[in-house]
Design a protein around this nucleic acid. Structure first.
Length: 682
RNA sequence: GGCGUGGUAGCUCAGCUGGUUAGAGCGCAUGAUUCAUAAUCAUGAGGUCGACAGUUCAAUCCUGUCUCACGCUACCA
């Protein structure tokens, strides 16, 4: 639901999701969060609004400690490295943060700590003791990621306590067979630990009213997701973790505990503001301030449910007015993936395409995943540059400049007589300006950009229709008017295009020899005066040739090839076992007699198997690879003496042996001849 | 499996509370033009609006079922 409410607010606090400091920035981050946020902020500044644009690195959490351990460096080394890369690439790319901070600095520690303390003192938390794995050798509780073991699903030996990366399933640490601490290698023990929880359930009715009734204008994906969460019923969420990397929990008896990273990270917006200005409270506590969070769709629940609940619990803060979350950007038909190196990295782009920040900004905006996941392709990147930036915008400006230099020595000619055409153009300019305002204020940046380009289109059409290169022979006065208007249009582009392609508009201003022209003057004043001397014409954009694009595509294909190699690497052999260990297993041949999908699951199938010994029920996670029909009658191998276990209310007696392919698909291990059911596999 | 979002021309997308010859940009075709980075301008060809049923005088838009994509979530011996 669109509104134009921009003038209700005196100032704006705009945040963009804090990137996690365990890797560099890629085009998915840019298209989803930083480019739209930057457009919004640049626009507001052009309107003369009081706006602060907040960013920073999220530097806590378990993955960073894991990465540090793997590389044999400290977590601080890791975050220093990536914070540096990220900050530098944002700067070069023209993301106009007023501050780009980080969550490891002192201001943030104090702010997050105080925030927790305040909620603690108010009794906003509940305390709960839970049992968790503990490494007795290093005297430390273990985060899920610090426990490895055998995946109960695929038998992979290197599964983590939260997820098996081999088969992709998410796990609980307690599910792992033979859990092992990665810190000492010892077997962890269960031990009680106390944690603090934010009882989100208590905020449910408030959230329902605040979001579902008062913010129906939020984007449908955001609104729908929130509704889904609230309707499902909210649970208390832990706000602390047993870890030595993060902001310590500031209460007695909390040694070895830190704030959970999702609690700590959004407070980073506030800490960064504190660092930026001593008037920070104006930007966070004044009801005339509009708070807007730019995020990706994976972050909706934190920014719409959890963080607002925290702010509400604290009591003195304003709440976000909007949370424009984008969907995801794919790359050449595949999901962007850091681990598979399937991405276009910003710091590499800046090296490969020097001075072409705006081409990427333009492409990502024109193709932004605002309503659904979108695909970035290098072919599209090239086409948008060559057919739109070069051919429409760059070409128009060049035409106006070249003609003026040719006929009037580069001086802005005088406006003589105005015809209906010029009047029409002035009206169109106002229309374009209004359309862009409406689109940007409603977070429709794709649409806004298209409207901005309409100004250059208008200019091209004007020149084609009036043909000053012909007219110069017969009616110089008219040509003066035409070129005057054309140059004014080009000059107005410096403002209209500024939010989207700021490097280009800067260049254009230099060419025209003018200062920044305020947004609100558009339609009432013109940026150029007659007689003004223009500088030499330069090309605003250059064509991107096929070989540059081919090189990028090849780079990606190389990643893909490398991934295939990695994927087909055979899992290394497990540690030796005794013959005794082996003989303990009773593996038999059997036949599947019946099969049905277990209701409400995706992977589970309930099988009746003739084992020769008996006919028994086995639950197996094969439903993604087989249908019940095709499975009936199949010969299989089954571990018969595996202790029974209840899964989804069905007791499973044994486990069907499955072989796994490189791509994770499964197949049965079947006898090669028609041997009897109950035949021993040895 | 549950929930959410999306499935409209070759591509990227608009289509407000049901009635439009279903639109735009890019691409494509034809014509015009040469001031301009063969860039521009005009015209045109492209769509059973994911599938099937239903409600209605009338459905891209409402309801139901199904299907595909993505996300959240459960499950995973």
């Amino acid at each position: 639901m669109a509104t134009t409410s921009i003038d209700k607010f005196k100032r704006y606090t705009v945040t963009s999701a804090l990137p996690y400091a365990n890797g560099p920035i890629h085009i998915g981050h840019l298209a989803g969060v930083y480019v739209p946020a930057d457009i919004y902020c640049r626009y507001l500044r052009l309107k003369g609004k009081d706006v602060i644009f907040i960013g920073g690195s999220d530097e806590h959490g378990v993955p960073i400690t894991i990465k540090a351990r793997k590389e044999g460096v400290s977590p601080q080394d890791i975050v220093d490295r990536y914070h540096g890369i990220i900050k530098k690439s944002f700067e070069e790319f023209g993301i106009s943060f007023d501050i780009y901070s980080r969550t490891t600095n002192k201001t943030h520690f104090d702010t997050a700590s105080d925030f927790f303390k305040k909620l603690y003192d108010k009794g906003a938390f509940i305390e709960k003791a839970t049992a968790q794995y503990y490494d007795d050798e290093v005297k430390q509780f273990l985060a899920d990621r610090y426990i490895t073991g055998t995946c109960p699903h695929c038998g992979n030996d290197g599964a983590y306590g939260d997820q098996c990366e081999k088969c992709g399933t998410s796990l609980n640490a307690t599910d792992l067979i033979n859990p092992k601490s990665t810190l000492s290698g010892s077997k962890p023990i269960m031990k009680e630990t106390k944690h603090w929880f934010l009882p989100l359930d208590k905020y449910e009715s408030w959230l329902r009213k605040w979001i579902l009734e008062e913010h129906k204008e939020w984007k449908t994906n955001v609104y729908g997701q929130c509704k889904s969460w609230i309707d499902q019923g909210l649970q208390p969420r832990a706000v602390s973790r047993d870890l030595d990397w993060g902001v310590p929990v500031p209460v007695e008896g909390a040694e070895g505990k830190v704030l959970y990273v999702w609690f700590d990270a959004p407070i980073g917006y506030i800490s960064a503001t504190k660092e930026l200005t001593k008037d920070w409270e104006l930007y966070w506590k004044d009801s005339e301030t509009k708070l807007v969070h730019f995020i990706g769709k994976d972050n909706i629940v934190f920014h719409c449910i959890v963080f607002p609940s925290m702010l509400k619990a604290e009591g003195s803060f304003i709440l976000p007015e909007n949370v424009p979350a984008n969907e995801f950007l794919n790359l050449e038909g595949d999901k962007i993936s850091t681990s598979r190196n399937w991405a276009v990295w910003l710091h590499e782009y800046l090296i490969d395409f020097p001075g072409k920040q705006d081409v990427l900004r333009y492409t990502l905006t024109a193709n932004a995943p605002e309503t659904k996941d979108n695909d970035f392709t290098w072919a599209d990147f090239q086409a948008r540059n060559n057919n739109e930036l070069v051919a429409i915008f760059g070409n128009f400006v060049n035409r106006a400049m070249v003609l003026t230099h040719k006929f009037f020595e580069g001086k802005v000619p005088k406006l003589t007589e105005i015809t209906d055409y010029e009047k029409q153009i002035q009206e169109d300019i106002v229309k374009i300006k209004n359309n862009i305002e409406y689109s940007i204020e409603n977070y429709r940046f794709r649409e806004a950009l298209k409207e901005a380009m309409d100004l250059a289109r208008l200019g091209n059409k004007y020149l084609a229709d009036t043909e000053p290169w012909k007219l110069i022979k017969t009616d110089e006065a008219r040509v003066k008017t035409i070129l005057h208007m054309s140059l004014q249009i080009a000059a107005l582009c410096t403002t209209i295009m500024e939010p989207f392609i700021p490097f280009t508009t800067e260049k254009l201003r230099n060419m025209l020899g003018i200062e920044k022209f305020a947004w609100d003057k558009i339609g009432t004043e013109m940026p150029l005066v007659a007689g003004h001397q223009l500088n030499q014409a330069e090309l605003l954009f250059e064509k991107i040739e096929d070989d540059a694009i081919t090189a990028q595509v090849e780079k990606l294909m190389k990643s893909k090839a490398e991934n295939l190699v990695v994927a087909s690497v055979v899992v290394p052999q497990k540690p030796d076992i005794n013959f005794d260990d082996f003989t303990k297993m009773d593996i038999r041949l059997g036949t599947i007699l019946s099969a049905e999908k277990v209701a409400k699951t995706k992977k589970l199938m309930k099988l009746t198997v003739d084992t020769g010994i008996d006919k028994r029920t086995v639950v197996s996670g094969i439903a993604e690879y087989y249908t019940p029909e095709e499975v009936i009658g199949k010969r299989v191998s089954i571990i018969a003496n595996l202790a029974p276990r209840e899964i989804k209310g069905i007791v499973s007696h044994g486990m069907i042996l499955m072989a796994e392919n490189a791509d994770g698909t499964l197949c049965f291990v079947s006898p090669e001849k028609e041997f009897i059911n109950g035949g021993i596999v040895k």
